[in-house]
């Protein structure tokens, strides 16, 4: 007991925050570059070599832009909403383990034994940020955007949770560290391939990314829930969106792709090597997100609902029942 526990947690939190914010900044640049290439453009390349300083330029722009509040807005909630979004998005990183030492110590700020529930609770609260932002803006497009956000979140969170419960049943735990350890021999993507596909789809919907970006839908709703936001408050929503993207990527890695376990048997898994495996897998997910965005057009609203309720939910339920039955009948296989 050399240092007080709060100091250790504080240092860990600061390190994770710094890394996560940097990752956010460069995942944005990464997205713009990859999207640019996919659209036969070079992407941002004016600020710094290969556009590497673009995030810094964007940050400066965001900070110095005028922060407008519409007359019709509810000032308190209007100002609060971006913080709800951001705090929830950042909070999830408090319990995500990025790797583990050989003695089983998780590389995370906090180790919660109901980790997966904590993440889902936080992302559910995050919806309030979007809903309240649209409602408090006092203008029609944001309101439509936030109504859509609420409906979409309710529809897709259900299927998402269902798909994750399959993994929880297999691992017999809701703690993220235990779930990763349970994938030491075989990743859960193999027995839970259906769950993985459902998670993949619902995760995109949960983070309001194309082709499920009906909440923002530039072409129909101007900017959706953040139409009236400008300057740093808009920036906060932006950060929250990308952090959510990183969160679901990390979760997918932890739940289905074996976390810090090496993809090639025999190679070391934990420690710094494990961290690299983890980042590679999460990066792959981020790339998939971008790839998806530049490939598929946006869903129509009724089709989005149709798909969520009539396809994803039944399939997720069946998958869950099947998993539960298999685990109950042959516990040794779990």
């Amino acid at each position: 007991m050399s240092a007080p526990i709060w100091l250790i947690v504080l240092i860990k939190a600061i390190v994770v925050l710094a890394v996560v914010i940097t990752t956010f900044a460069y995942s944005m640049l990464f997205e713009r570059k990859i999207m640019g290439w996919m659209q036969l453009r070079p992407g941002p390349n004016r600020v710094g070599p290969w556009g590497l300083l673009q995030p810094a330029a964007d940050a400066v722009k965001m900070i110095f832009k005028e922060d407008l509040t519409p007359d019709t807005a509810d000032p308190l909630i209007y100002r609060l909403a971006p913080f709800i979004s951001l705090v929830c998005a950042m909070g999830a990183f408090a319990i995500i383990p990025f790797s583990a030492s050989s003695d089983g110590t998780l590389w995370s700020v906090g180790n919660v034994n109901a980790g997966i529930l904590f993440v889902f609770a936080l992302t559910s609260i995050g919806v309030y940020g979007i809903s309240l932002a649209g409602w408090a803006s006092g203008s029609k497009f944001p309101l439509l955007g936030s109504v859509r956000a609420t409906a979409q979140m309710i529809s897709y969170e259900l299927s998402m949770t269902m798909s994750v419960i399959g993994v929880v049943i297999l691992a017999g735990s809701t703690a993220l560290g235990t779930i990763v350890d349970a994938q030491h021999r075989v990743w859960f993507i193999v027995p839970q391939i259906v769950g993985f596909i459902i998670y993949l789809i619902t995760a995109v919907a949960e983070t309001n990314r194309a082709p499920f970006d009906l909440v923002e839908a530039e072409t129909e709703l101007v900017g959706g829930f953040h139409t009236e936001y400008s300057g740093l408050r808009f920036g906060l929503f932006f950060i929250a969106e990308y952090l959510n993207m990183i969160t679901v990527s990390c979760l997918a890695t932890l739940l289905f792709l074996g976390g810090w376990n090496s993809p090639i048997p025999g190679l070391p898994s934990g420690g710094f090597v494990g961290l690299i495996w983890f980042l590679l897998k999460a990066g792959l997910f981020l790339f998939f997100y971008i790839w998806l965005r530049s490939t598929l057009p946006r869903f129509r609203y009724d089709r989005l609902m149709d798909f969520g309720w009539k396809v994803l939910l039944p399939v997720a339920t069946l998958n869950l029942i099947l998993t539960a039955v298999v685990v109950a009948l042959w516990p040794a296989h779990a």
């Binding site: 290439w37 996919m38 659209q39 036969l40 490939t295």
Partner: peptide, 10 residues
């Protein structure tokens, strides 16, 4: 298609 466009000449 989108993937192959990454490597195309801009």
């Amino acid at each position: 298609t989108t993937f192959s466009y990454i490597f195309k000449k801009k």
